[in-house]
């Protein structure tokens, strides 16, 4: 067993293999923002409380501020930058725009990612299921009414959200 201060790792980020050397105490959030320049992932609390840093790890939403990057090595990670395909917005992104599910926008990447993972698993959710699924994301502008509308509307687009 090796006990190391530096780790050479790779991640599969938004479909691309990214290799780099990291230190064990760097969080996944720090690596995404500071090493890889993926600043769509936001640091709101750094304590796994607010959800602004949510990314998908193996398609499940996690708080990247409270996951050691080294623990996620070799895994598939989706950030908000990876949702847009060929310049076309993801249906959940489009729905947040259409329904004003945004005020200041800081929490939005986290909400969109959490919602997209949820809609991958749940075809026709009830409003209550949407609330439960998004209960780990805080919007201090409290745009919750329109966030729920956005997610419900995206779910009604009738086709699978992601391939």
């Amino acid at each position: 067993m090796k006990i190391k201060k530096r780790w050479k790792v790779f991640f599969l980020i938004n479909g691309k293999r990214r290799s780099l050397t990291i230190e064990p105490h760097w969080t996944l959030l720090e690596v995404l923002r500071d090493q890889l320049g993926l600043t769509g992932t936001k640091k709101g609390c750094d304590r796994a409380e607010c959800g602004s840093c949510t990314v998908l790890l193996e398609r499940e939403p996690v708080y990247s501020c409270q996951v050691l990057a080294v623990q996620a090595r070799g895994q598939r990670i989706t950030t908000i930058e990876g949702l847009t395909r060929n310049g076309k917005l993801h249906p959940v992104q489009q729905s947040f725009i259409d329904h004003d599910g945004v005020q200041c926008g800081f929490c939005t990447p986290g909400f969109v990612l959490t919602a997209s993972a949820f809609l991958d698993r749940t075809r026709r959710p009830t409003p209550d299921q949407v609330k439960q699924a998004l209960s780990g994301n805080i919007c201090r502008c409290n745009a919750y009414v329109k966030i729920i509308e956005s997610v419900l509307s995206a779910s009604k687009r009738g086709k699978r959200i992601r391939d």
Partner: peptide, 17 residues
């Protein structure tokens, strides 16, 4: 001084409005 213990409401606390 944090969201959790300051008890900032979350989406499930939203009433019909």
């Amino acid at each position: 001084g944090n969201f959790l213990e300051h008890k900032v409401p979350v989406i499930v606390d939203l009433p019909p409005l």
